[in-house]
Design a protein around this nucleic acid. Sequence first.
DNA 1: CAAGAAACTTTGGCGCGGCTAACTTTCTTC
DNA 2: GAAGAAAGTTAGCCGCGCCAAAGTTTCTTG
Lengths: 145, 145
Amino acid sequence: MPRKPPSRPPSSAVEDYLERILDLIDTKGYARVVDIAKSLRISQASVTSMVQRLDAEGLLHYEKYRGLVLTAAGEKLARNITHRHQLLTDFFKLLGIDDEVIYHDVEGMEHHISPSTLRALEALTTALRRQPALLAKVQNTLDAH
Amino acid sequence: MPRKPPSRPPSSAVEDYLERILDLIDTKGYARVVDIAKSLRISQASVTSMVQRLDAEGLLHYEKYRGLVLTAAGEKLARNITHRHQLLTDFFKLLGIDDEVIYHDVEGMEHHISPSTLRALEALTTALRRQPALLAKVQNTLDAH
DNA sequence: CAAGAAACTTTGGCGCGGCTAACTTTCTTC
DNA sequence: GAAGAAAGTTAGCCGCGCCAAAGTTTCTTG
C-alpha cells in the first residue's frame, strides 16, 4: 500500500482550482493553463505553480508543457465541490436572490460548509419546493423592504 | 470634512477581530490584548499589530500599553457583523444542526454573505418558525440518512 | 520549414496574517 | 517601594497565493 501523505483539508484556493478544472474538462474536453487562468481571473504563472502543487498532492497528473488530467481522487473531490456549489446555488435561487449575488456569495461560502449542514440545506430545499405558498410569503416580506 | 481613505471592505480577519472585541466589551466592559488573543486562539503579538492597524483605519482608538476602545464607526461595523453572525446561527439552529457544526460553519461563512442574501435568510427563518410541520419533515428526511 | 504568435514555465517579489523570542511597561504583592 | 509576574510591544521570520518580467517550448501560418 502506498503511504498517504498527512495532507490537510484542501484550501479554498485548491477547491476553486479543482472546480474550474472539472468544469473546463466537462465542457471543452480538456483544461489548459491559459483557460484556467482566464476562468479564475488570475495569471498563468499562478496557475502553473498551483498545478504543480496539485500534481504533487496526487489530485492531477501534470506533464510540463503538455497539459493535465485529474486523477480519480482529484475528480472525486472536484465532483463533491461542484455538487456542493450547485446545492447552494439552487437553494438561494429558490429564495429569489439575484443571480450575481448568488454567484458572489456561493463563491465565498462554499468552502466553509460542513457535510451535515449541506444535507440539511438539501432537505430544506426539497421541502420548500413543495411549499410555493411559503416561498411567496418570503418574497412578500422582502418586497416590502 | 476629513478625507476618507479609499479603504477596501474589511477582510475576514478584521471582521473576526471586531466581532470578538465587541463581545468582550459587551460582556466584560473592556477588551484587553491578552483576552482577544485567547478568544481568537492566536498570539498576543498578532493582536497588537492588528490593533494598531484597526486604529490606523479609524475603527478603534488605541493607546500603547493602555488599551483600546471602539470608535463609532468600529462599533457600528462590529454590531453589523455580530447581527449577521446571530442570524446565521439562528437559521441553522432551526434546521437542527449540531451546535459545534453551526459554530464552525458560521465562523467560515459569515464573511461572505451579502446583505440581500442575509435579508432573505432572515425572512425565511421567520416564515419557517411558523411552520413546525415543515421543519419536522426536514428532520425526518435527515434522520432517515 | 522558418519565423512569429501563443502557451507555458521560472524567477523573484509582495501583502496578509500568522508565529517565536526578546524586550519594555504595568500591575501586584509583600 | 522593590521585585517578580503579567501584559504588552517590537523585531524578524514564514507560508500562502498572488503578481510581472523574462525565458522556454509548442503551435500556426505564409
